[in-house]
Design a protein around this nucleic acid. Structure first.
Length: 438
RNA sequence: GGAGAGAUGGCCGAGUGGUCGAAGGCGCUCCCCUGCUAAGGGAGUAUAGGCACAAAAAGCUUAUCGAGGGUUCGAAUCCCUCUCUCUCCGCCA
């Protein structure tokens, strides 16, 4: 959410910034509502002030035992006018709020301007794609060839965009998550968190998924209940990312200055409806309704958030370096960034079978955008509450990392070597072969 | 699932219809005093808005005592609904 004061005082800059992302701010509607708001609010508050003053007089007079009927008569007519004004004001405020909640964050000045992913900027590259001297397979063929990856059964159990892993592959998946968690907690100073996978609407509004992106989420009700709440909304939503529960830990909190920065890491499944992505990445593990991710979140002092973003990306990159997987870091352009982000780096890992780099992590500084929605604050140097900055990034998407390992570490005989750093998590196994690795 | 108790500022806690944005304490900030330390004295100390202003300060004003609704000229206080916490019983991975 943007600051409403900024919209009132500097709407031109805001609309120009938003236009860079391809977002057309509804200027006329906003200005009209604002003008109305101003009138009605002043009027409402005047009426309230009158009522309060009269009520005070009545109280005073009564305590002295004086007659109050004269003052009572004075106030009698206020009731209806006041109620009407209050109702009207509330409607206007709601409309304004609705507009505000759907406006994306302003891009940071350093963000390259552009329409779509073609205008993203490469920041750096690490590692060299391996040269294969045999015909390579994609991760689906590799996994199915080993008898450890089974989309057909997954489809029977649940449907499209679900997967079933078995044996050494399931273990490799688990090993990746463990390895990531251990690296971040032991080497990068993160506090590990175990968080709810079902969250309420307030949390989703806090991080920006609601109200605009409801169709991307899965909703759940308690057993047997069609709708668990009176206003027709589901009891819970499944988290689309651990960013939601972790970041919302500080919702409605005032964090002491000395406890900043907060750095959390959590390994969770993520659930996404993938509405609007029909036909994209239908093959394999790349785009699933359910996937695991190790998520990194920083809650920081506003002065520190851009330094924190660089750190965060570095922490995610470290995982790929340890796994010796080639990647590149991209600065997303204005048109390709997510709703809440002021600046985003994507990390893209090399996938030999696709002969290209594919997103495996997205690291964003949301500045105060989420904090303002959440009322997440800290007590600043002057002892005053001020909004925090929030950042999040994948460190990394586990399923996609598994894809990268399978494809980059495949051997001519269909087996897959286990990256060095994962072997301690694999009972010292050094490759997945036809035996299933167990 | 059943029965009961509760939710007040950074924290503890008083407050059952009027001068309560809220006593008192703790904490914190500033000042004074004492040779140091300890103790003591004084002052201050919620948040988000609106108006006005070039802007800041000051000012005027509104809202907020778990959330939402209601009663009333007036609600922390009375009524209703919900959420959460705690205790006891039952069930349960």
């Amino acid at each position: 959410m943007l600051e409403i004061q900024q919209l009132r005082t500097d709407l031109d800059t805001v609309t120009r910034q938003l236009a860079k992302r391809g977002y057309a701010f509804p200027t006329e509607a906003f200005n009209a509502l604002e003008a109305e708001r101003k009138t009605i609010q002043t009027q409402t508050q005047e009426l309230q002030a009158q009522r309060n003053a009269a009520s005070k007089k009545i109280g005073n007079a009564k305590s002295k035992g004086e007659d109050v009927s004269a003052i009572m008569a004075e106030v009698a007519h206020l009731g209806d006018a006041l109620k009407q004004a209050e109702t009207q004001l509330e409607q206007i405020q709601n409309s304004l709020q609705k507009i505000l909640l759907e406006v994306p964050n302003l891009p940071h000045d350093s963000v390259p301007e552009g329409k779509n992913e073609e205008h993203n900027q490469q920041i750096r590259r690490w590692g060299e794609p391996r040269q294969f001297d045999f015909a390579i397979k994609d991760h689906v063929s590799i996994g199915e060839g080993l008898g450890l990856l089974d989309f057909e059964t997954a489809a029977k159990l649940s449907g499209a965009r679900f997967s079933l892993m078995k044996g050494g592959l399931a273990r490799l998946h688990r090993a990746l998550a463990q390895f990531m968690l251990d690296t971040h907690t032991q080497e990068h100073g993160y506090m590990e968190a175990y968080v709810p996978y079902l969250v309420n609407r307030e949390s989703l509004r806090g991080t920006g998924q609601l109200p605009k992106f409801e169709e991307d989420l899965f909703a759940v009700n308690a057993g047997g209940a069609e709708n668990s709440t009176a206003n027709n909304s589901p009891a819970f939503h499944l988290i689309p990312t651990a960013e939601v529960p972790i970041t919302n830990m500080v919702r409605d909190e005032i964090v002491p200055l000395q406890s900043l920065p907060l750095k959390y890491v959590a390994h969770t499944p993520c659930f996404r409806s993938e509405a609007g992505s029909y036909g994209r990445d239908t093959r394999g593990l790349i785009r699933q309704h359910q996937f695991d991710k190790v998520e990194l979140v920083h809650i920081v002092h506003p002065d520190q958030s851009y330094a924190a973003l660089e750190q965060l990306v570095g922490h995610a990159e470290k995982i790929l370096q340890k796994l010796v997987l080639p990647y590149r870091v991209m600065a997303l352009c204005t048109g390709d960034m997510g709703f809440s982000a002021a600046k985003t780096y994507d990390i893209e890992v090399w996938l030999p079978a696709q002969n290209t780099y594919r997103e495996i992590s997205s690291c964003s500084n949301c500045e105060a955008f989420q904090a303002r929605r959440m009322q997440a604050r800290f007590r600043n140097e002057n002892g005053k509450p001020a909004l925090l900055h929030t950042l999040n990034g994948s460190g990394l998407a586990v399923g996609r990392t598994l894809v990268a390992v399978l494809e980059n570490y495949q051997n001519a005989d269909g087996s897959v070597s286990i990256p060095e750093v994962l072997r301690p998590y694999m009972n010292s196994l050094d490759q997945l072969g036809r035996t299933g690795g167990e």
